[in-house]
Each structure stands twice: as C-alpha cells, then as structure tokens.
Amino acid sequence: MSFVRRVAVILGYEWRRALAKKWVLALIVLAIAFQTLILVALAQFIATALEVEFDTIWVVGVLQGQGLFVPLIAIIIAGGSMSEEYERGTADILLSKPITKVEYITGKFLGGFSVLCLVEGITTATGVVLSLGLFGPQSELQIAPVLFLAIAYSSLVFFSLSFMFSEVFRRGTLAMFTAFGIFIASSVVSQILSLLYLSTGEPLYDYISKGLPTWSTTNFAQFIVSQLIGTLQSPLQPISSGDFQLAAAIIAVYAGASIVIATVRLVKSDVSKKAD
C-alpha cells in the first residue's frame, strides 16, 4: 500500500471522528443560523433604509458567515485531532498498525482540514443562496470559488495552531483553550496596535499588528476580493484592500511552522499512554 493510500485511510478516519462530535455539528448549524440571521436582518431593516447597490451583497454574506464560528470550529476540530487519540488510548491502536508517524499526522491534518473546508463550503454556498433569495440577482458570482479557497486558506492559521497544540500538549481542552486564547488576545491586541498606528503613525505598531495571527486570517479573503473586483461598499463594514501577498506569506509561515513543530514532536517522542 502506498503512502497516499495510507494517508487516505487516516483521512477517512478523521472525517468520521470529527463528524461524530455532536458539538461540531451544533457549531456548524449555529454558523449557518448566524449567517442567515445577518442576511435576513440586512434585507429587512438595512436594505430599505440605504441606497446601496446590493448586487454583490453575497460577498458580505459569505465573509460575515465566517466570523467567529469558523475559527471556533477550526480550533475544535484540530484541537481534538491528535490529543483525543492519546487521551482515549486509541493512538496505541492506530500507531501499532503498518503506518509511519508522518503518514498518520498527514492523514490527521488533511482529514480535519478537509472537514473544515466542507463547513466553509457550506457557509459559502449558504451566503450565496440566501443573497440570491433575499436580494435578487447577484453579480461577480464567478469569484465565489476563489473566495471559498481564500477563506479555506486563511483558516489554516488557527487550524494549524490548534493542531500543533493538540500534539504538543496531548490534551484536547488545553489545546483548544490555548488556541482560542491566542485568537481572542490577537484580535484585541491587533485592534489596539491599529489604533496606536493611526494615532502615532509609528510603523512598528503596524508591523507587529500584521504579524499577529488574526490579521492575515481575517483580512486575506477580503484582500483577494478587492484584488479581483475592487473595493466593495458593504452596509456592515467595507471590504478592505491590502497586501494579499504579505497576508498569504504570514498564513504560510504560521501553518508551516505549526505543522513542522507538530510533526517533529510526534516523530521524536514516544506515543504516550492513555491518561488515567
């Protein structure tokens, strides 16, 4: 059996593991409900009051849908991916089979990430369909697949961080709380630094802000949209433009470093026994 087939077997396993979790399913439902709520509210209350073209509102619908829930789902799926196998004692069963640790972690990562992509695919599709239903014909729909890929790519940051903590700590709750803590702290600090940069003009604040994990995560997809179809007027907040290449590079660094750390930790250390 080849490397690819062994990775694919673990990938399929990871799908079952992630989707067997009722709270992951509950969060997916919540994410869709939240997205629906925003678009319905827009249609009912704001659209009538504003004289804005709503033919690209689907972009707002899709991006708003990602908001809090998708990073949270990413953190939960990835945070339990490696750690739960140690906590339950199933890592022994999986790794006593003819598979290398690199194949195992690759299958785990790709499995969890593909589940997340499915969720993002659903929320993207929901955003488009709801916008069509609530606001009539939409334009620029041809960029929907690119927008989906951009959202998926940007979610790599917190998925990878949580995945890394899952392997490093080998405790699911600790991994999820740490990743979520970083998400919250990074969001707050980033806002503060942006304000400081605006008020002082000191570029260091801007550099640090951009280096934090939330900047690239929250902005990359918007930068891609503005690159493709220009700056959009959103009734909620403007779709900003920016250096999408820098954002892409920062995402790659966070994801790459996290994957390398997790892999080295797995390969170099013993498979720990079930915690009593």
Partner: peptide
C-alpha cells in the same frame, strides 16, 4: 513500522476502541 507491523496483530490490555 510499515513492513515490521504488516504481519503483526496486537490486542492491548483493556482496550479503548473508537
């Protein structure tokens, strides 16, 4: 592990299965 464990069956003590 791929070749060494291909011909091995393992039943752990008080297993926790998925």
């Amino acid at each position: 592990p791929v070749h060494a464990l291909q011909s091995v069956g393992y039943a752990p003590e008080l297993p926790t299965l998925q």
